[in-house]
Nucleic acid binder design. Structure first.
Lengths: 223, 223
DNA sequence: GCAAAAGTGTTACAGTTACACCCATGG
DNA sequence: CCATGGGTGTAACTGTAACACTTTTGC
């Protein structure tokens, strides 16, 4: 095993932050340093201090950019192609994060950040567009067989809100009765005994049961 | 964004190599340098030269250890917890590889490597046991919704061999008629017009259709 | 001719989908 | 009292799982 050291790699963490805002799935970007003249956006990120684990760094990145200390966080992929300069390479360990709808984030910490709907992304630096696309695929995919959808919602929510969340991410309409029957049968949520009033009949509020076992048996390609 | 450089990180690639051997799923390890006196095994790996991409390095690792230049390769996870020494950290980008059954590998290149059945792993260095467990989960999982199972087989195979492969990895018996019906209906394999003889009636040989679309619609947790 | 492995259909059951109306509240 | 969104059950259909015997070859 060769022992050649890689002194000139730069190791960074990047985070794709998703949230539901304005009835759309949005992702967070920050303005990149204008290298030539073009201004582009990039994924929030940072170097990884030697004393930190990768996940800690991703978490700290969230704290730094949006002042948030708790969020769903999952490693997505590590990118590390050599660039044009054969003496330089950036290793990007990318995480994705999910922020509950309605979370108030402190944009004063970092005035250069901005949310964009995933359907209307701006021009992004490097391969960040591909990264977001991949994160989105993973989110959709994961939504189908785990309970990750609840991470997008506040602690208490109505069944209509939950259904809307699923519809937004999957990009298709779902049947109300089937949706309700199945999610209640799955036993992953419980009513909190309160109702949310607004226009029309008040809606029962539910919360996710953190003890819920919410992995579905995959459908096999072959039996 | 802070610009602190991480000079003392060591960046390495590791590969979990799976193959079917002796009617068992096996993984490849190499003898680790005996640090104190205890001899343990570790995942084959190497440093990542600055001019290479991560996947290239993983591929080169396969070439170096077993003289193989083509194999299914997929990024698994990146590990990078700080160790005891706060000035040192190893970043391990881990891939997993699948080698078709019957592939003759050149163990003369590296006499210190050895296959172990995944059910009888030896003592492994660092967190490599966890890594293998995770790779195995991913392999099982992936088998259920993609056609990755074919990577474990030689180019031509019988339906019984294919079924056996699935049974070995999933760890359960499958029904012969259901298995055959569904895989043939899926249209991912085609007969090559030859038969393999041995004991009993000769078996028809098939091959995987590389143009096959072989992703199954996931079963949803909620509709 | 027999041992050994390949190959082949049907039926019962479970899960999924499609679908339309009444209910409770606020204004 | 009416507009608005919340809430509820059933029937047809589709996919899945369970199951045993015949066929072809080598020895």
């Amino acid at each position: 095993m060769s022992q050649e050291k890689s002194f000139i790699d730069r190791l960074e963490v990047r985070v794709v932050v998703f949230s539901l805002r304005d009835d759309q799935l949005q992702a967070l970007f920050c303005r990149s340093e204008p290298i030539i003249t073009q201004v582009a956006w990039e994924l929030p990120g940072d170097c990884i201090p030697i004393h930190q684990s990768l996940e800690e760094s991703a978490g700290q990145c969230l704290a730094y950019f949006i002042g948030l200390h708790e969020a769903y966080l999952e490693q997505l992929y590590t990118y590390g192609d050599p660039g044009q300069d054969p003496e330089k390479r950036v290793i990007s360990v990318v995480y994705f994060a999910i922020i509950p709808a309605g979370t108030i984030i402190n944009t004063k910490i970092q005035p250069t950040i901005k949310w964009f709907p995933v359907k209307e992304l701006p021009e992004l630096a490097n391969n960040h567009r591909d990264i977001v696309d991949y994160a989105l695929r993973r989110l959709r995919y994961k939504l189908e067989y785990t309970a990750v959808g609840f991470e997008l919602l506040p602690e208490n929510f109505t069944l209509t809100e939950l259904q809307r969340t699923y519809e937004l991410i999957l990009g298709e309409k779902l049947d109300k009765r089937n949706f309700r029957r199945r999610i209640l049968e799955a036993g992953v949520i419980e009513p909190i005994g309160q109702w949310q009033s607004g226009e029309g009949r008040p809606a029962r509020l539910y919360r996710y049961r953190p003890d819920a076992v919410a992995e579905v048996q995959a459908r096999r390609l072959f039996p």
